[in-house]
């Protein structure tokens, strides 16, 4: 009897493993049914994600704020002075203001280059259990969004539309390990390929091995055929380190991406690009160093006490 039970157990395990292998094979062969299953799941999930986004919005950036505590100390001290009622109002308003600021900067950026954009709110961030860097936005095919469209943040490139559902869309962020973009360096016009590394620092590989890159060089998107997946001229990031190892086929560098992916609240999807390439028009202004006042104190030693 026990032997029969064990046999059934083994049969069940083998059946499950075979089913999983069958699914992998079907998916790798590009069977549309499985992609349809993923789309259907997303369609079912999107109302819940919207509701969840609204419910947790006051606490969404809690951990991000904690990590930037030093920078926001003054703000926190100011908020402490407020009473409990005003505090909760301020938290909600702060969230709305941040999104408004992001939206204004986004429209400025898109307006300068003449991009036609659709704005959307981030409603979910992909789980990193699969090592992918994605977000879900609250606009989809019904709003005119299609696969492989450029996604902008207030400070530059955020990513690309990976999948589109009726009312939502999945964005692959520029930090995703599978993300690749052709770039050119502002000014020198050298071209290269930027690859995501899972964090805000990306890897740049120059195409021409005779050209050089410097720390501080600004990278812009080079643009794609028919402006998809990438429109030209979008600020991507700036070079923070150059790899000068001897014997390398092409020069490589580390790039810091402009977009702060931890606080991404609103994004714009470029649905129409200008007929004229914006060139270097979107190169961000270099930050002006804030003068730090120095105070010199001359200490005069007091005479030593004498008895």
């Amino acid at each position: 009897m026990r032997r029969g039970g064990e046999g059934r157990g083994r049969l069940l395990l083998i059946s499950l493993i075979v089913t999983a292998l069958f699914l992998i094979t079907l998916d790798l062969r590009g069977v549309g049914l499985l992609e349809g299953a993923r789309q259907a799941t997303q369609t079912v999930l999107s109302p819940f994600q919207r509701a969840g986004s609204v419910a947790v919005s006051p606490f969404k950036n809690f951990f991000s704020d904690i990590t930037h505590l030093g920078r926001t100390r003054n703000e926190i001290e100011k908020l402490r002075a407020e009473n409990a009622k005003l505090k909760s109002v301020l938290i909600n308003r702060k969230n709305a203001d941040a999104q408004l600021k992001q939206l204004k900067n986004l429209l400025d950026l898109a307006g300068t280059a003449g991009y036609k954009v659709i704005n959307a709110r981030v409603i979910s961030q992909g789980s990193s259990q699969s090592f992918a860097q994605t977000i879900t936005i609250d606009a989809g095919a019904t709003a005119g969004i299609k696969k492989n469209m450029t996604v902008l943040s207030e400070s530059g490139l955020a990513g690309v539309v990976k999948d589109v559902y009726p009312r939502t869309a999945l964005i692959s962020l520029a930090t995703d390990p599978t993300f690749r973009i052709g770039i050119r360096i502002a000014g020198t016009q050298q071209i290269g390929i930027l690859s995501g590394r899972g964090n805000r620092s990306s890897n740049l590989q120059l195409i021409d091995n005779l050209t050089t890159v410097k720390v501080g060089d600004i990278l812009l998107s080079r643009g794609s055929v028919a402006n998809r997946p990438f429109v030209p001229g979008v600020p991507v990031g700036y070079v923070t380190a150059v790899d000068n190892s001897a014997g390398a086929i092409a020069q490589s560098a580390t790039v810091h991406l402009y977009t702060d992916f931890a606080t991404l609240g609103v994004v714009s999807i470029v649905v129409g690009a200008p007929t004229i390439n914006p060139g270097d028009a979107l190169v961000p202004a270099k930050p002006q160093p804030t003068p730090v006042p120095t105070v010199t104190v001359y200490a005069t030693p007091s005479p030593s006490p004498t008895n």
């Binding site: 699914l23 259990q129 699969s130 995703d176």
Partner: peptide
């Protein structure tokens, strides 16, 4: 987990791993 939009692998990869 495979049907999750954030899953980057093919459908069946998480299934296989989770069964085991």
């Amino acid at each position: 987990m495979d049907l999750s939009q954030s899953s980057s692998g093919p459908i069946g990869q998480w299934t296989l791993l989770m069964i085991a």
